[in-house]
Simulated scan of single mutants.
Amino acid sequence: MDQLLQHLVNTLIMGGTYALLGIGLTLIFGIMKIVNFTHGELYAFGAYMMYFFAVILGMDFFLSIAFAIVAGMVLGAAIEFTLLRTKRGADIDTTMILMIGAWIVLQNAEQLTWGGIAKSVPSPLPTEPLVIGPISISYLRAMVLLIALMLIAGTYLVINRTKLGKAMRATFQDSGTAALMGVNISAIYTMTFALGSALAAAAGALLGPVFVIAPTMGDLASLKAFAIVILGGLGNITGAAIGGFILAFSEEIGAGYISSGYRDAMGFLIIIIVLLFKPTGLFARSERIG
Rank of each mutant, 00 (worst) to 15 (best):
S250E: 12
L42K: 02
K163P: 01
S259P: 03
A241R: 01
G101P: 01
L206H: 07
G176D: 09
D91V: 04
A227N: 06
L140C: 01
L63D: 11
A68G: 00
M143Q: 12
G261P: 11
F172M: 07
K163Q: 03
L276Y: 11
A71T: 05
V105Y: 00
G116V: 14
L199K: 13
V274E: 01
M59V: 06
D60K: 13
Y18D: 12
A19H: 05
A153W: 01
T11A: 09
R88S: 04
I92Q: 08
G254E: 13
L220M: 00
L20K: 10
S123R: 11
V55W: 04
T38V: 03
F249R: 03
G115M: 12
Y51E: 05
W103H: 06
A68P: 01
W103V: 01
I31E: 08
Y156K: 15
I273P: 08
F193T: 10
A47T: 08
T86L: 10
E41R: 10
K33Y: 02
M59F: 02
A167E: 15
G16W: 11
F245W: 07
V210M: 14
F81N: 01
E252V: 11
A44I: 15
I97R: 14
S259H: 03
M168E: 08
L4P: 10
L27S: 15
T94K: 13
R169H: 02
L180T: 14
P134S: 09
K224V: 15
G290V: 03
P215D: 14
A71M: 09
I28A: 08
L42Y: 00
A202L: 00
L195C: 10
G261N: 14
Q173S: 02
Y189F: 03
A179W: 01
G165Q: 08
F53M: 07
F53W: 05
E251H: 10
L130A: 12
G165L: 03
T94A: 05
P126L: 08
V70C: 06
G58P: 14
L4T: 08
G182T: 00
M99P: 10
D60I: 10
A153T: 01
I56K: 05
H7R: 14
I56M: 12
F45N: 04
R161H: 13
I31P: 05
T113H: 09
E80A: 02
T190G: 09
V70W: 11
I104E: 01
S120C: 03
I132D: 14
A241P: 02
G22D: 10
T113Q: 04
T86I: 07
L223G: 07
R288D: 10
L247Q: 07
I117P: 09
S123T: 05
V229S: 08
L83S: 14
D60A: 11
D2P: 04
L207V: 02
T192N: 00
G232K: 04
D93W: 14
G243K: 00
L247I: 11
F226I: 13
T280E: 05
P122W: 01
Y257V: 12
I253M: 08
Y257H: 13
Q3W: 11
T155S: 10
E80P: 06
V158S: 09
M32P: 00
S286K: 07
M32S: 03
I28N: 07
S222A: 15
I28M: 07
K166F: 09
I79L: 08
I246M: 07
G243W: 00
V158I: 03
L164P: 02
S120D: 00
T86V: 06
V183N: 13
L276F: 06
M181S: 03
M59S: 14
